[in-house]
Design a protein around this nucleic acid. Sequence first.
RNA 1: AGGGUUAUCGCCAAGCGGUAAGGCACAGGAUUUUGAUUCCUGCAUUCGAAGGUUCGAAUCCUUCUAGCCCUGCCA
Length: 552
Amino acid sequence: MSNEINSSNFIKNIIINDLETGKHQEIITRFPPEPNGYLHVGHAKSICLNFGLGSEFKGKTNLRFDDTNPIKEDTEYVESIKEDVKWLGFEWDELHFASNYFDQMYDSALLLIKKGLAYVCDLTPEEMREYRGTLTEPGKPSPYRDRSAEENLDLIERMKKGEFKDGEKVLRAKIDMSSSNINMRDPIIYRISHAVHHNTGDAWCIYPMYDFAHPIEDAIEGITHSICTLEFEDHRPLYDWIVRECEMKCAPRQIEFARLNMTNTVMSKRKLKQLVDEAVVDGWDDPRMPTVAGLRRRGYTPEAIRKFCSEIGVSKADSTVDSQMLDFFLREDLQPKAPLAMAVLRPLKVVITNYPEGQTEMIEVENNAKDEEQGTRLVPFGREVYIEQEDFMEEPVKKYFRLFPGNEVRLKGAYFIKCNEVIKDADGHVIEIHCTYDPETKSGSGFTARKVKATIHWVDASAAVPAEFRLYDPLILDDAPENEGKHFLEQINPNSMEIIKGYIEPTAFKDAKPLDKFQFVRHGFFTVDTKYTCDDHLVFNRIVPLKSSFKL
RNA sequence: AGGGUUAUCGCCAAGCGGUAAGGCACAGGAUUUUGAUUCCUGCAUUCGAAGGUUCGAAUCCUUCUAGCCCUGCCA
């Protein structure tokens, strides 16, 4: 996936400089997710950034699982992450697990102890908090801060052997309890956790903390540019301290950028997990989820997501990208690809009274107006068709130029029809309309004597295939002021999914497979769902509606 | 004695002392067998504010203001 990041950004400039000054001959980046959930579109930004930089500068990019906290991690997540990265179109040079470096990390911890730069601390979490100080007051040294290297070596060994319970002891780096940067106030670098790890099983009962593990992971892999999000800016001094004091051969450079925020989108792994755990959604791949798996099932394409990530840019300014931008790149990508087909979501029966009963003819329709190579197909047409309810108005409003009594419109690919009669049920609802057609107006015949101001889509009533259409709205209405302060589960839009039973023309879908994309005239872009699909009853997810639908 | 960081159009975002790119959104107009698409056109005398340096400042200096992050044995 080369040159999709074309625009300039500050990280690129740093890399160019590092290459030009000879600091590096080759750059190596990495994407380091913790396997504690599925990837979402925010991760896609990081993936595109890291892999994009790697390929643009002909360097390397690793996929590394930052699995240092066994209680939150699972192999289900590592598998899904691998799949999603591949689906997005990227290939990693090396695949690693932080947990495979546990031995080296432990050795580094021993080194720190020997250098007098780490100590075992017996403070309870509450005491620890107290000793840490506050944002405006310095911390005070732990009473265990001056234990001898010998004693610390003995204690860490016994911690490793499992002689202590969870939380009883920790290993801390000895840095500066009065630092204005709280991360430097003797941060914990190892904690005890008697938990089974998805990769190392029960081999370990002490696990390194992120601040200690991450720089070591990067350094071991020779990462030149360690790209992370803004909230780690305060951690950089600690990152550099660890690399230096652990005497790593390679000194990766941490660079922070602003994480992706998008309007109407929940971009928090924790909240997304909650939606799954509390069964608010169908699973991580629910089409309403902003997860990569959800977007895929909804019908988004890797190309559109990549283009989006490259166009939104990379900076350090907190920002919220308008989700309309993603929609735009989706339409742009799908427009020439997805064949145009006819589907009627809310059917209204039209009887063409002067069309011979029992007669059927095949109408030739182009598959994609933008791409002639996609050819044409034959669609059955007969005396009774379904049109969209909104394409008929008994009493037309101003500027309405679709069907109404006395008006003539074209049925796409077929004939002009004129509405003569409106049939209603006992309650006065329109249930059927009667029209006449003009045989001379057949599509392609060159008829020019009269013009119509509208063309509407239709499906043949006897040949139409029932189908289900799922329309989606954002799960969360984060723009609504009345939602402010509410627990996020109470902000869930109860109408985030609308299920509509309608009809599709039979022809275009004979060989439809899950994830095939279609453009339904006037309704937008749809994909065949990966579930709930059987031979004669397809379920379509609406990926994105047309830019602006018919506003009256 | 808190520290870090950000601020360019409604939303993203280039710009790095030589006189404000681009995209999204929006608004007009043209074409259209779907009011979509496509196609033109318009859209920051101004860069958070105020001073200063300079022939020249979004870019340099000073002060101020606002937002975001940091007090997990999470990452």
